[in-house]
Simulated assay, not measured.
Amino acid sequence: MPSLPQNAVLIPIDMQQAFDAAPWAPRWNKKLDENGLALLAAWRAASRPVIHVCHDSAEPNSTLRPDRPGNALRTGFEPQAGEPLVRKSVNAAFIGTDLDLRLRRLGVDTIVLFGISTDMCVSTTVRVGANLGYRVFLVEDACDCFDLPDGDGGTIAARDVHRAHVATLRHEFATVLTTADAIAGL
């Protein structure tokens, strides 16, 4: 397990309430909140930086619109004093936001990511972060995603979607960790 630099920033992505109800499809990771909250507690106890990311959808009927209750962060995932909240409207947390500027001003070269959903906003943020030159760690057991239609009338199980995306990210874009590994790396 690699040691994480003192200024490695923990970035929870889209830990929002909307994902618990329709129209969102079933998810697989029953330990998402438990693992995410453990990461936040460990980062805070170690006085390490945290930057939260929230999706503010511009889609008219989205449950993630800023004026909808589902836009709110899940219980326990709200920023604490000194923890910024970056609001995005596309998949990548770096696009159309000041996340890169915030990280550069902190002198950060390492980011640790988790959240919803593995195959969309988490994956896209991992990829863009790596392309911007950050050393990226993905905490796989603190991510979750949804069952997806396969285009032929069937469904790809969320767990399989997650596994395929983690494999791709591990191959080229990120070091993949468990929650226990990330905490031990502090």
Rank of each mutant, 00 (worst) to 15 (best):
D98E: 10
L99C: 08
L99F: 07
D100V: 08
L101N: 15
R102T: 15
R102S: 11
L103D: 03
L103H: 01
L103G: 00
L103F: 02
L103W: 03
R104H: 03
R104I: 04
R105W: 13
L106K: 14
G107K: 01
G107H: 02
G107R: 05
G107A: 02
V108A: 06
V108N: 07
V108W: 01
D109G: 08
T110L: 00
T110F: 01
I111N: 06
I111G: 05
V112N: 03
V112P: 01
V112F: 08
L113K: 03
L113Q: 04
F114H: 09
G115V: 01
G115A: 01
G115T: 00
G115I: 00
I116A: 13
S117C: 15
T118Q: 02
D119L: 12
D119I: 10
D119P: 12
D119H: 14
M120H: 15
C121K: 12
C121Q: 14
V122Q: 02
S123H: 11
T124S: 12
T125C: 06
V126M: 08
V126N: 03
R127T: 07
R127G: 03
R127W: 01
G129V: 09
A130K: 12
A130Q: 15
A130R: 14
N131I: 11
N131W: 09
L132Y: 06
Y134V: 01
R135N: 13
R135V: 10
V136F: 05
V136S: 09
F137A: 05
F137N: 05
L138M: 04
L138R: 00
E140I: 09
E140W: 08
E140C: 15
D141M: 05
D141S: 10
C143W: 00
C143L: 02
C143D: 01
D144A: 04
C145T: 11
C145W: 01
C145E: 06
F146I: 11
D147Q: 00
D147T: 00
L148G: 09
L148N: 12
L148W: 12
L148R: 15
P149M: 10
G151W: 02
G151K: 03
G151S: 05
G151V: 03
G151Q: 08
D152K: 14
G153P: 08
G153N: 07
G154D: 11
G154A: 07
G154M: 07
G154N: 06
A158V: 07
A158G: 08
A158L: 07
R159T: 14
R159I: 12
V161C: 05
H162M: 06
H162A: 08
H162Q: 09
H162Y: 06
R163G: 14
R163W: 14
A164K: 11
A164D: 05
A164W: 07
H165V: 09
H165C: 07
V166W: 10
V166L: 09
A167F: 10
A167P: 03
A167V: 08
L169Q: 06
L169N: 05
L169I: 07
L169E: 09
L169M: 11
R170S: 06
R170V: 02
H171G: 15
H171D: 13
H171Y: 13
E172Q: 12
E172M: 15
E172T: 14
E172G: 15
F173Y: 11
A174R: 00
A174I: 00
T175S: 12
T175R: 13
V176A: 04
V176M: 04
L177F: 02
T178Q: 03
T178I: 10
T179W: 04
T179A: 07
A180N: 09
A180L: 09
A180W: 04
D181G: 13
D181E: 14
D181V: 10
